[in-house]
Nucleic acid binder design. Structure first.
Lengths: 209, 209
DNA sequence: CCGTTTATAGCACGTCCGTGCTACGATTTT
DNA sequence: AAAATCGTAGCACGGACGTGCTATAAACGG
């Protein structure tokens, strides 16, 4: 049964197996053997698509980046290039919905956050993963900066906001919530997580009746 | 040269070696062999103080918890049980100094944050570390709640603050800053980190001229 | 129809790991 | 002086790992 398989699809399927193993047992258990077993393949088959274990991890990490990035871009487009101008309330909700993509609010996003945390912490000591960790951080800072600048231009922000600083603070809140939701799911539920995000954004907005 | 050594001191020294290995190569490289080499001991010697690798990790994690907790308690005592009442400015600075203990603002705290992040993420998939991860989170939520409640009683807070929610949000900012400082040290410097913390606290305080 | 390519599969080697076990010198206790 | 204890040290076993290498069967190109 060879050749009829799309290589890209196969690699993606193996990456999904990596995600499942990481979520269940942690990244250090994501060996070629366990991943192959999870994917229902022989170890040699996995090695046919990935030259080394490191290459598999790099691919899986980038695949996760692209998955979440794609959703963020969709939201960003909806927000910035809306056909009809949005009301303040609609804009606020659009921003919440976008930022909520990186929070562990449902099972799918929770698993993404778990896997991402594993990758990004591993990247600290693995140079080959470094770029895949830093770039999303830069992108997130840039995205939040854009959002805040847009809100400022629309007159939705308080007068005294330091946008660069607030972008960092917003990113910190997001990743802090993600971290706590992932590591202490029994202590921080999705409802509270979302409430914290809303409260944070409210603190940036101009007071209004 | 036996017996004249304080066992507690020896275990602590081995834990320090664990910290150095984790900081340099990550937790998954902290094997008995590498830790023993880092500590300048034979592997058998380390095993004389720790029955298993898991026990060594549990001890090291708890040691890190106690180290940081001790510093936090010192600050908390200074804040809550000050001989002479503090001015608002003094209280604000005391709170900043206390919360800054869990931020990677200097080399020592940076290394603590690195090691702590490694332990707490590992605890997600290692039941024996679970308690050592959850308890400090609960403690931090309680600590921030206490601080906010104290500030509220002193009339230093805005009128509309939901203290439980704000405690979660403050914890998220702190751990988010720690995460970013640890994982992206080239992107988030200590000065900015501290500025974000000050800005966050300012957002909670009652507006004043 | 036959060579080439591709997908799948697995063996085997060297390395690193935790751990059960033993050994020995130094100290303390009887 | 003898015995028990403690700190230090290391061997060796079984297991998991990444990887170099080979084998086989199916699809494709000529």
């Amino acid at each position: 049964m060879p050749k009829i398989v799309d290589p890209h699809e196969r690699r993606q399927a193996v990456a999904e197996a990596v995600f499942r193993v990481i979520e269940r047992d942690g990244l250090d258990r994501a060996s070629l053997r366990t991943v192959a077993a999870e994917a229902g393949l022989a170890i040699g088959s996995v090695r046919h698509y990935f030259a080394s274990h490191a290459e598999l991890m790099e691919f899986a990490m980038r695949a996760m980046v692209e998955r979440v990035s794609a959703r963020l871009v969709t939201h960003a487009d909806r927000l910035l290039a809306a056909a009809t101008p949005l009301t303040w309330a609609e804009q606020r909700e659009a921003v919440v919905a976008m930022l909520a993509e990186v929070l562990p609010l449902d099972e799918e996003r929770r698993r993404e956050c778990v896997v991402w945390l594993a990758f990004v912490t591993a990247a600290r000591t693995r140079p080959e993963l470094r770029a895949s960790a830093d770039q999303p951080y830069d992108d997130m800072v840039e995205l939040t900066t854009r959002v805040l600048r847009g809100a400022e231009r629309a007159g939705a922000l308080r007068d005294d906001v330091d946008i660069d600083l607030e972008a960092r603070r917003l990113c910190a809140v997001l990743d802090g919530l993600s971290l706590h939701g992932v590591l202490h799911p029994t202590r921080l539920d999705p409802d509270t997580t979302l409430a914290v995000l809303r409260r944070h954004l409210a603190g940036l907005a101009r007071e209004q009746s």
